[in-house]
Design a protein around this nucleic acid. Sequence first.
DNA 1: AAGGGGCATTGAAAGGTTTCACAAACCTGG
DNA 2: CCAGGTTTGTGAAACCTTTCAATGCCCCTT
Lengths: 344, 344
Amino acid sequence: MTVQESGAEPRTAGMKDVAAAAGVSLGTVSNVLNRPDRVSPATRAKVEAAMAELRFVRNESARQLRAGRSRVLAYVMLDGSNPFFTDVAAGMEDAADAGDLSLFLCNSAHQPAREAAYLGRLEQQRVQGILITPVDPDAPLLGEIAHRGTPVVVVDRTPGGTSHCSVAVDDVYGGEIAVRHLVEQGHDRIAFIGNHTTVGQVRDRRLGALRALRAAGLGPDHLVDLTTTALTVADGRGAGERLAGLPASIRPTAAFCANDLVALGLLQTCANLRMNVPDDLAIVGYDDIEFAAAAAVPLTSVRQPRRRLGRTAAELLLAESEPGHEHRQVVFTPELVVRASTLH
Amino acid sequence: MTVQESGAEPRTAGMKDVAAAAGVSLGTVSNVLNRPDRVSPATRAKVEAAMAELRFVRNESARQLRAGRSRVLAYVMLDGSNPFFTDVAAGMEDAADAGDLSLFLCNSAHQPAREAAYLGRLEQQRVQGILITPVDPDAPLLGEIAHRGTPVVVVDRTPGGTSHCSVAVDDVYGGEIAVRHLVEQGHDRIAFIGNHTTVGQVRDRRLGALRALRAAGLGPDHLVDLTTTALTVADGRGAGERLAGLPASIRPTAAFCANDLVALGLLQTCANLRMNVPDDLAIVGYDDIEFAAAAAVPLTSVRQPRRRLGRTAAELLLAESEPGHEHRQVVFTPELVVRASTLH
DNA sequence: AAGGGGCATTGAAAGGTTTCACAAACCTGG
DNA sequence: CCAGGTTTGTGAAACCTTTCAATGCCCCTT
């Protein structure tokens, strides 16, 4: 209306165009955008009308270039198909919303190369901060990034060094309450199903299991290891078949699974083999994902405060920019949710 | 080594600093980065050494500002906690990797406001393109964005207009093969569980179900609607209880669920109520998520080519920039995966 | 030995925003 | 009616990269 649209469509209108259309200076347009209170209602209206007219879209690259920092957080997650991580991400979104930031999700899918590629891209984008559940929490890359100035918070792993904050859950304690519960239910021969030789988390959970046995006066030989390669439903099924193949005299009467996916696989094998849960085999899972409560036999599981984990991680990240910041390692305490899979 | 690090740490080194350290011009540094073949090996080595020395990180904002476009795709998904969508995203990642692009995931969680916020942010970032499973495929916002120049591809919904490409699966056909299978198994009274009044997809699946009945000479009264508010496990449980409450004379002998989460919930209720699956109730789900095969009774389900859906969507998006581009609506054909939940 | 072609490198402009010191206009109270 | 303070608005610099025409330089050809 103020400007004549003659012929070809302009690629995109910039603030300069808006300023011309509204008959004000460039600086005023910027003020309307960034400090609306510093501009009189009348001119503000004029400028806003021009912006609508021209379909102005702010160019975030230029804004960032000048302003130095972006309004974006990113979470590089280990496994996008595991509900645990998407729940953690939901918690981060809560915090990001509150701070008027956007959260971008990246899925490394356990691949170090992909993780590195994402980290590089994010660093180049000058994101405000990076949340990450790393393939390897002690990889030097993380420290380098933090050292170069992009805040990093490690989620659900505790890194050795302290070049950044971290948020995790006490896995030793989680393993302990799981097995203590089984012992209280009268079991004294318990299978541990997971890949404790590979993953730190799982090692800790197993440690907790041993501690609970010791507290009950039972030695480590009361824990029967069924080692898996990963923590998928298929791994659980496989372990179930191995378990069922053991002679009755030494077959455990209960199983503690390193996560719920494994527990669900185990449960499925039990159903196939007509083993009753919990009478023939009691099962405890880990994570308390939504599908745990929804299983054919609702699963007793160790609940991690997933959403809170994510929210806290994001909050820690935002706190990094404050003046006298000290890196903190937050550890949450898990809790046992008892359901039918362990109750006679 | 070439440069003396005196006193305070510089925020971040830019290409200018690298050029100075390497004793070459700015343009040469740019060439090393963007057209390495145009630079002699000797100087390239010098420059690369300087970059390593100074821990140079390319500033993506400035690059974009000048170059105009970014190397980022984004997928705005409807529900980050539904494995279906994370699998679709995995397919997109495959395509993005191939094109040396990064994929950022955003989760609208069914909230229009959040969706709009993400879209705004992405448009401002000038991402190369937006993939989206929208809350409302006919919202005008999508068309506006496409019209302003950011390519948009709609995933798993078919929008009314044709201002962009779309990729979907033939839901009518999916419903048809599901119910045809049930009819072939001898069922003639079938429950339909889902929210077909709200969601276009579900409406189509139900339409397919009716078509299969008609083909078998059965009228629409042979389909018993159990309407839910959403498509979660809890909705499935609730529907199961309603179903079990029906008098035996009119109770369906089979159920077709609008997705696998609902089917899993239904399955759980059956287990609780000691109803045998499939003898007392046959169940067909939809999506064939990983948990479907892993259920206590492995679930017959309609498989959507999730990963291919995602990959194709991303490819379509990349093709948008080609000269004589026409918007295409790709429709895939689902297939039935038969498992124990429908086989005597 | 002169001319010509290629190749490696350079220097300056451009891209859209934010920021900040400054100018102009407007009030307030004496 | 004026001094001093406040509110609005302005103009130019700065942010860091990419791009491209122009400049040297070296080697090959005749």
